[in-house]
């Protein structure tokens, strides 16, 4: 049942520094960007908090740019903007492919990449791409800036290294060498939450990152080593099984996720040969 909205408080920061001050002083506060995850919980009557910090006016956190060879994506950049970005289409096509699979077009118009990462669902569509592309998460607090490698960002199911006073402001993606590959497997052909998702890079040092098969997104380093050292696909799939820990849930089964993860790995490797 829907939550009573009158019990909720919305803080309206005028600037990034104001927002960071509120995060520091008014805790606990839930940052609110596109709202596509927050509103689902409100509608279900299980809100994530009673005090929200509206980030919508912080225009400095929007946009995609290249600086010194690194692509910087503002945390408030929507998936619709990512879909339309010519720069990303050239440099990070996997992220464009992932953006296209997020919810429906209406959701893509609202949902932000920062929100997708902050929400921390292991089924987040953009997460495997950021993991496979060695992205860096840029965190700001009233005390300053901190850069965390994406692969070390999550510590458990919806747990991150972020402090309560920190805000994700951007992602920095260094050049990705090799051919990018992405596939999401959901419960239907569109408007779906993933059951298994793979973002991978075919290069002398291949990269493999899976979503929805463990409490966090998984960068499958052992699988990558097997592939890099010329191991067979069966050996790589066997390594992968030691790196993922899928569960039975509403959308699928652990067994299905294991098999399909292995199949996706084979499909990636065969198609990029």
């Amino acid at each position: 049942m829907r939550s009573a909205l009158s019990a909720l408080e919305l803080l309206e920061p005028r600037s990034l520094s104001h927002a960071l001050a509120l995060l520091r002083d008014a805790a606990p506060v839930v940052p609110l960007a596109g709202g596509t995850d927050v509103y689902v919980l409100l509608n279900a009557g299980t809100p994530s908090g009673t005090r929200y910090l509206n980030l919508q006016r912080l225009d400095g956190l929007r946009g995609i740019a290249r600086r010194n060879g690194v692509i910087s994506i503002g945390a408030l950049t929507t998936f619709a903007e990512i879909r339309r970005s010519a720069l990303l289409a050239r440099r990070l096509p996997s992220l464009v492919a992932a953006a296209r699979e997020v919810g429906a077009v209406q959701v893509q118009n609202r949902a932000t990449i920062g929100g997708n990462v902050a929400n921390g669902s292991p089924a987040g569509d953009s997460l495997p791409v950021l993991a496979a592309s060695d992205a860096v998460v840029v965190l700001r607090s009233a005390d300053g800036v901190r850069r965390v490698p994406f692969d070390g960002f999550y510590t458990g199911y919806r747990q991150t290294v972020m402090r309560p006073d920190e805000l994700i402001v951007a992602f920095e993606v260094p050049p990705v060498p090799g051919r990018q590959w992405f596939r999401k497997v959901g419960t239907r052909a569109a408007q779906t939450i993933s059951k298994v998702v793979l973002a991978a890079v075919r290069a002398p040092e291949p990269r493999v990152a899976f979503g929805s098969v463990a409490p966090t997104v998984v960068r499958a380093r052992r699988t990558e080593s097997v592939l890099a050292s010329g191991g067979t696909l069966n050996e790589a799939a066997a390594a992968l099984m030691t790196e993922i820990a899928p569960i039975d849930d509403l959308r699928s089964t652990a067994e299905y996720r294991r098999r399909v993860a292995a199949n996706l790995l084979r499909q990636f490797w065969t198609e990029t040969a």
């Binding site: 279900a44 419960t187 239907r188 052909a189 569109a190 779906t192 939450i193 509403l250």
Partner: peptide
């Protein structure tokens, strides 16, 4: 009914 949401009870879209 554990999937009493249109997110997790999948009716076909036009794409399906």
């Amino acid at each position: 009914m554990a999937n009493a949401q249109l997110t997790n009870y999948a009716v076909p879209t036009t794409m399906d």
